[in-house]
Structure formats: C-alpha cells, structure tokens
Simulated scan of single mutants.
Amino acid sequence: MQNPKYNRIVLKLSGEALAGNKGYGIEHDILASIANQVVEVVKLGVQVSVVVGGGNIWRGVSGSARGMDRSTADYMGMLATVINALALQDALENEGMETRVMSAIEMKEVAEPYIRRRAIRHLEKNRVVIFAAGTGNPYFSTDTAAALRSAEIEADVILMAKKVDGVYDSDPLNNPNAKKFEDLKYIDVLNKGLGVMDSTATSLCMDNTIPVVVFDLTKKGNIYKVVMGEDIGTYVGR
C-alpha cells in the first residue's frame, strides 16, 4: 500500500465552506462529509489538525466596515470560530474519533487553552486537534492562524480547502476563460495578489518553507487524494 506523502497536516477550513450553498450557518451534511474524510486520513497514520474560520457566522472585517470597533468585531469573529470548532468536534466524535479543541482565547468550559507542546502531544496520540479563535489577536486572519500553527507544530503542509479546484488568475465562477495554476511560488502569490491566503499568512509560509495545497473540498475524497500526493489542486511552494 502506498504511504501518505504528508505525515502531519493542517487543514484550513473557511466558515463559508461549512455553510454550503446557504452562505450562512452550518450545513450538517457538509460537516459530516468533512468528518468522514478526516477520519479516513487519520486511519492512514496521518496526524491531522484543523484551523476553522468563522465567516459563516460573523466576519470581523464586515462589522468594522459598518462602523464597529475593529478589535471588537475581530473578537466576535474569533468566538464564531469556536462555535464552528465545537460543531466539527461533535461531527468527528460521532465518527468515533478522539478530538481536542484548543482555543487561543481561554474558555476552559468548552476548550483547552492553546499550548504548543500539548497540541503536539495530542497529535502524537492520533487525536484530531481543532485550533479555534484564530491567533487570539485582532487584525489577524484565520489564514494567518493556520500558517502560525503550522510553523509551531512543524506541519508538513497546509491544505487550503476551497469551493474551487485550485488557484486561478481570475474568478473561475465569473470568468469561464480563467486560467488555473498547477504550481505557484510564494512570491508569485504575493506579487499577483492571487488571494490564496492573505499576505501575512503567505509571507509566514514563505519564511518557514511551509507548502500550501489549494484544493476543492466539495468533491468527497479529495482530502485523501491530497494527503496521498495525487496531483490535484494548486501547489504553492518555493
């Protein structure tokens, strides 16, 4: 049997991905599908951690644009990620998987505080670790949280789950002639403003040589395919 290409991964899930076609809230069929795919990967011996966004519930940037204090709006967004993390934890545990939610904002009743060494120990015990509340700081996105946690736990790769099958030079949903990139360098993502992740996250990945694979989450089995090294999506690296 072929061995997985990656041994320790960070799966980045946007809040919008959890909402499905509704655009808001949590679509339980999608949640169950993600949980099923994660369990499939863990059974290969891969250590899996997940960073969840909160855009299906609240977006700090949009709140700030309407006149709300930016820090307050961002903290609200962090709380939204905790809601999504608990929902994903429940879905994974329904599949028989051991999990831990670790929050960058302390809330002992629902999640462990994020401690780097403890997170690594959970992964070594084959528990799925779900990182919630971003970095715990306003003005930083959950993309940046994914890059930061990946560097801290020495992950092999960040898997960026999207609703499209890779990175394009323009929006493929609006432009049928959009060109898909098979491979990209970090500096190209920054220079071309391709929107793989924000510039802070991209720079952090570049400085720490953390590869990123952008792939289509809507097709079941794609997490397994990426982990096994199949050529799907867009690979971002040096």
Results as ranks from 00 to 15, higher is better:
residue 205 C to A: 14
residue 112 E to F: 06
residue 117 R to F: 14
residue 88 L to G: 02
residue 182 E to S: 13
residue 31 L to W: 14
residue 90 D to S: 13
residue 26 I to L: 13
residue 169 D to K: 08
residue 22 K to M: 11
residue 195 G to M: 07
residue 57 I to N: 03
residue 171 D to I: 00
residue 128 V to Y: 00
residue 88 L to T: 01
residue 118 R to H: 13
residue 26 I to A: 10
residue 127 R to K: 14
residue 61 V to D: 10
residue 26 I to E: 11
residue 175 N to S: 04
residue 221 G to H: 07
residue 183 D to K: 11
residue 109 E to P: 00
residue 233 G to Q: 13
residue 48 V to W: 00
residue 87 A to W: 04
residue 12 K to I: 00
residue 176 P to T: 01
residue 182 E to V: 01
residue 44 L to K: 13
residue 23 G to D: 11
residue 141 S to T: 08
residue 20 G to N: 07
residue 165 D to F: 02
residue 161 A to P: 01
residue 227 V to P: 00
residue 84 N to A: 08
residue 232 I to F: 11
residue 136 G to C: 09
residue 203 S to C: 09
residue 59 R to D: 06
residue 96 G to P: 08
residue 149 R to E: 08
residue 225 K to W: 04
residue 70 R to H: 14
residue 4 P to F: 08
residue 51 V to S: 03
residue 37 Q to W: 02
residue 122 H to D: 14
residue 103 S to T: 14
residue 168 Y to M: 05
residue 146 A to P: 01
residue 60 G to K: 02
residue 176 P to I: 00
residue 83 I to G: 04
residue 185 K to H: 13
residue 186 Y to Q: 03
residue 24 Y to E: 15
residue 128 V to I: 09
residue 207 D to Y: 05
residue 66 R to Q: 13
residue 93 E to V: 04
residue 129 V to D: 08
residue 12 K to T: 00
residue 35 A to R: 03
residue 110 V to Y: 10
residue 74 D to L: 04
residue 30 I to R: 12
residue 137 N to A: 07
residue 221 G to W: 05
residue 18 L to F: 06
residue 68 M to E: 10
residue 134 G to S: 09
residue 199 S to C: 04
residue 154 E to R: 15
residue 94 N to K: 15
residue 15 G to F: 01
residue 59 R to S: 05
residue 158 I to R: 12
residue 136 G to E: 05
residue 27 E to T: 05
residue 12 K to F: 02
residue 13 L to K: 02
residue 8 R to M: 09
residue 30 I to C: 10
residue 222 N to R: 04
residue 149 R to V: 01
residue 204 L to Q: 05
residue 199 S to V: 04
residue 7 N to W: 05
residue 50 V to T: 02
residue 93 E to S: 14
residue 127 R to W: 02
residue 202 T to S: 07
residue 61 V to Q: 07
residue 55 G to P: 12
residue 98 E to K: 15
residue 220 K to A: 07
